[in-house]
């Protein structure tokens, strides 16, 4: 497998309050489980998907289109895992991340 292989995927933030703390934690924790680098593009801005500081200051609101870009030997798996978070809209244990941390 090519170590420099890059995979990418476009996602849309469906969360009512945007990519806030709880979903950001899920992204960071998931991304840290892979060796691959994860870049998240929002327009011209690129942030590190493993950095909580970056994700917090990215301020991706509801409806924002993001491009996920994974690079490295387990890039495809990393991308699938992160993509899955967006697909199920960050629901954990049947509770939407939107339900909490809203206030």
């Amino acid at each position: 497998m090519n170590e420099k292989q890059t995979y990418s995927k476009d996602v849309v933030v469906e969360l009512k309050n945007g990519l806030h703390l709880s979903p950001s934690v899920q992204i960071v924790q998931t991304a840290q489980g892979f060796r691959a680098k994860l870049a998240i593009h929002k327009g011209d801005r690129v942030v590190d998907g493993k950095s909580m500081l970056d994700l917090m200051t990215l301020a991706a609101e509801h409806g924002t289109r993001l491009r996920l870009e994974a690079t490295g030997d387990d890039a495809q798996a990393a991308l699938d895992a992160i993509g899955a978070l967006f697909d199920r809209n960050f629901v954990i244990d049947g509770v939407s991340a939107d339900r909490v941390l809203v206030d």
Partner: peptide
């Protein structure tokens, strides 16, 4: 309170552990 609430602190912890910061 449940995992979702623990997530507030998980976020703070991730932030404190962020090598960028």
């Amino acid at each position: 309170l449940g995992k979702q609430y623990g997530a507030i602190f998980a976020a703070h912890r991730q932030l404190a552990q962020d090598p960028k910061l």
